[in-house]
């Protein structure tokens, strides 16, 4: 796993983008929810996707780990590429894709199992049951998620007993244990209090060193604090995409400017 993702990163430095979408349209039945979205995400950056509710940003995010596949009547046109490869190609293995592309959800969703088993889950489903290997991976992942000091003495405790903020960091640890190279986050802090939110934000900043992160958020200030690039979605269209600084200080599009300055949303 490790070796593979290492090789992958080298290849990306040679040229192609980590994540890429080309002229993507998405339909739910007859309803078009995304319109001609083209976007490139470079490696080891944080990209924020902002926009009002229902603008399609979550749907767009979920294209990259094929989470929309479970929605009845879902249909996509255009290409979604990860490391230059079409992830919707016929022989693509969804399970393998999701080991490379991890996801953190809006509401903390730990399994009703122990803290330890939550983090070990991703390895167990790959058939890894060696206790030493699991112990090491669990500790490493929880440390990376900045949760170790708070839970190291009760790894056997049920994860549901943790606070919301701790649960969310546990979910991040659980995702990291699978050793993805990309992490998708769907409003990871929207259900949390300000202190927990700050912790998640600084964690995202830390993780950038080793992971490519895409965050959906409706909190513009959060986007401004944590991201390198920002994309603004409105009514299913990617209105503007660029360096976060530029988007927030000097937006080129009038709609972006209105949204950023709080005139709608």
């Amino acid at each position: 796993m490790l070796k593979e993702s290492g090789e992958m990163k080298d290849r990306i430095k040679g040229g192609s983008y980590m994540l890429e979408s080309k002229n993507v349209n998405v339909f739910y039945g007859d309803k078009k929810v995304l319109q001609d979205v083209t976007l490139q995400v470079p490696e080891n950056t944080v990209t924020a996707l902002i926009g009002p509710s229902g603008c399609g940003k979550s749907t767009y995010l979920r294209l990259f780990n094929r989470m929309n596949d479970y929605i009845e009547n879902f249909r996509k046109e255009g290409d979604i590429l990860i490391d230059g490869k079409d992830i919707y190609r016929k022989d693509a293995e969804i399970e393998e894709l999701r080991k490379t592309v991890g996801m953190v959800f809006q509401k903390p969703n730990p399994f009703p199992k122990s803290i330890y088993e939550n983090v070990a889950y991703g390895l167990r489903i790959q058939g890894i049951n060696n206790k030493d290997v699991l112990d090491e991976a669990v500790e490493k992942s929880i440390k990376k998620a900045a949760l170790w000091d708070e839970v190291k003495d009760d790894l056997k405790k049920n994860a549901l007993a943790l606070s919301g903020g701790q649960q969310q960091r546990l979910c991040i640890a659980r995702t990291l244990a699978v050793e993805p190279s990309i992490i998708l986050m769907d409003e990871p802090a929207s259900a949390l209090d300000p202190i927990s939110t700050a912790k998640i934000e600084s964690l995202i900043y830390e993780l950038k060193q080793n992971y490519t992160i895409v965050v959906v958020t409706h909190n513009m200030h959060q986007a401004g604090r944590i991201s390198d690039k920002t994309g603004f979605f409105y009514l299913g269209e990617l209105v503007e995409f660029g360096d976060t600084k530029q988007i927030f200080t000097n937006p080129k599009n009038k709609k972006t400017e209105n949204y950023i300055s709080g005139r709608f949303g």
Binding site: F111, I125, C171
Partner: peptide
Amino acid sequence: PKSLREAAYGMGSTRLQTVFR
């Protein structure tokens, strides 16, 4: 909750693994 299934799928579980684990 659907969110638990999504978490399992999101980590690369197959359908069967999601059901049984």
